[in-house]
Simulated assay, not measured.
Amino acid sequence: MNAYIDHNESGRAGDLTRLGQSFDHLHSLAAAQVFAYMSRSMHNTDATFSQINVLFRLYRHGPQRIADLAEGAHLSHCATSRLISRLEKEGQVDKQPNTENRRERLVSLTSEGLAYLKDLQQKTTAAYVTLFKELPPALRARLQEVLDDVLALMPPPELPG
């Protein structure tokens, strides 16, 4: 039995669906390595998926109110407040007064939080390198050329800086 979920059991998928399934398959192979790393890193630091999600939201959107983080992460305000307190104790985030409303505090990513995200990005890149290194060099070069063309048409990545 193939461990990969077969998205198209009834026959050949349409071009876009097939392309999506192909990328999903590649992603699942890389994600197995990345998730193993995340599981180990979360176990060592007791980080949760919700905490990592909030760190990425802060990276992508900048400083935010706890209410906005709660809404974006689909968590209650109370759960998000506890999550932020824990991340603050770990040095991943800090809270500063909102200059537009002194009753509010804005949560922002610290250099330690950014370092964690950069490390996760490096592990993701390494997973894809491991995946593609077994391909023949000519095929890797063709794949890179196609991806360069595709990526030129996509929005810029939001990479930890």
Rank of each mutant, 00 (worst) to 15 (best):
M1A: 10
N2C: 03
A3D: 14
Y4K: 02
Y4S: 02
I5Q: 07
H7G: 13
H7L: 12
H7W: 03
E9G: 01
G11R: 01
G11L: 04
R12Y: 07
A13P: 06
G14A: 08
G14P: 09
L16D: 07
L16R: 11
G20W: 04
S22G: 05
S22M: 13
S22A: 14
D24W: 03
D24K: 04
H25T: 01
L26C: 06
S28K: 07
A30L: 05
A31M: 01
A32Q: 11
A32G: 15
A32L: 07
Q33Y: 05
Q33C: 13
Q33D: 15
F35G: 11
A36G: 08
A36R: 04
Y37L: 12
S39N: 06
S41H: 09
H43D: 14
H43Q: 12
N44D: 15
T45Q: 12
A47M: 09
A47C: 10
F49C: 15
Q51L: 03
N53Y: 08
L55T: 14
R57P: 05
L58D: 11
Y59T: 11
H61G: 12
H61M: 12
I66A: 06
L69Q: 06
E71G: 00
G72D: 07
L75D: 08
H77S: 12
C78G: 10
A79C: 06
T80A: 02
S81V: 02
R82S: 11
S85Y: 05
L87T: 03
E90C: 03
Q92T: 14
Q92C: 15
V93A: 03
D94Q: 05
D94R: 07
E100I: 01
R102V: 03
R102P: 11
R102N: 11
R102T: 02
R103H: 12
R105E: 13
L106G: 04
L106A: 10
L106W: 05
L106Y: 03
V107D: 01
L109F: 03
L109V: 13
L109C: 13
T110S: 03
T110F: 00
T110H: 02
L120H: 10
L120V: 08
Q121K: 11
T125V: 15
A127P: 06
A127E: 04
E134T: 14
E134M: 10
P136D: 06
A138R: 02
L139H: 13
A141S: 05
E145N: 00
D148Y: 01
D148H: 08
D149H: 04
D149V: 09
M154G: 05
P155D: 13
P156D: 11
L159D: 07
